[in-house]
C-alpha cells in the first residue's frame, strides 16, 4: 500500500489540520509516514503545500517525486492546479470550489474550474457551503478531507477517530461538527 498525497491551499486555510488528521490515522493503522510542511515566510497569505506520504513500507524521501502523487487535496481551486506536475495519470484531484482571492490578478473562476475539469479524476466540492450546513463554517477543510477519504487507503473510521483525538481538547461540540463535516464531504463524493 502506498498513498502519496499533496495538500494545498493558502496560508491559514487549515491544510495542516488535514495533514494532522491523516497523520494520526496513519499512525493508528501502523503505517509508515512522512509529512513535509511549509513553515515560515510563505505562511503569510502565500501558497502553501504539504507532502504527505503513507506506506506499509518505510518511506525514504520527504518529498513526493513528480508524477507520483495519488491524490491532490486542495482547500483552494487555483492552488489545486499548481501541483499538477506531481499528479500521477491515475491520481485524483479533490478541491474546494471557493476561491481565496488575495492577489490582484486572480484568474476567472470559470477558467480555473474548466482547467480542473480537464483532469480525468476530479472532484469539485463547495466545501464552505457544506461546512456551513454542518454547523461550522470553519470546517471547510475537513469537508474536503471527507470528500477525498474514498481515495485514501485507510478505513474511514480511523479518520473519524483521528478527528476525535485531534479536536478532543476543544470540546464535544467541535468534535461533533468536524465529524459531521467529514461525513458530509464523504457523502458528496460517493453519491
Amino acid at each position: 500500500m502506498k498513498n502519496d498525497i499533496i495538500l494545498s491551499g493558502v496560508g491559514g486555510q487549515g491544510i495542516l489540520s488535514i495533514a494532522a488528521t491523516i497523520g494520526l490515522a496513519a499512525v493508528a493503522n501502523n503505517l509508515f509516514l512522512k509529512q513535509s510542511e511549509v513553515h515560515g515566510m510563505s505562511q503569510r497569505g502565500g501558497d502553501v503545500q504539504s507532502h504527505l506520504r503513507l506506506s506499509d513500507k518505510p518511506v525514504a524521501s520527504d518529498l513526493i517525486p513528480h508524477g507520483k502523487a495519488d491524490l491532490i487535496i486542495s482547500v483552494e481551486p487555483m492552488e489545486s492546479l499548481r501541483y499538477l506536475p506531481w499528479l500521477s495519470d491515475k491520481g485524483w484531484l479533490v478541491t474546494n470550489s471557493n476561491p481565496f482571492i488575495n492577489i490582484p490578478d486572480y484568474p476567472s473562476l470559470d477558467e480555473i474550474l474548466k482547467e480542473i475539469k480537464k483532469i480525468k479524476n476530479h472532484i469539485i466540492i463547495d466545501a464552505d457551503g457544506i461546512a456551513k450546513e454542518a454547523g461550522s463554517a470553519r470546517s471547510g477543510n475537513i469537508v474536503i478531507l471527507g470528500a477525498a477519504s474514498p481515495y485514501i487507503d485507510m478505513p474511514f473510521e480511523s479518520l473519524e477517530d483521528a478527528i476525535k483525538k485531534l479536536f478532543g481538547k476543544k470540546g464535544d461540540h467541535v468534535v461533533e461538527t468536524n465529524l459531521k463535516a467529514l461525513r458530509a464531504g464523504k457523502e458528496f463524493s460517493v453519491t
Binding site: P65, H66, G67, K68, A69, M78, L81, R82, L84, P85, W86, L87, S88, D89, G91, I103, D105, Y106, P107, E111, I112, E115
Partner: peptide, 11 residues
C-alpha cells in the same frame, strides 16, 4: 516521471 504542466492561468 512527470505529471502535467501547471496551466498558464495559475498566478
Amino acid at each position: 516521471s512527470y505529471g502535467q504542466d501547471v496551466p498558464s492561468l495559475v498566478k
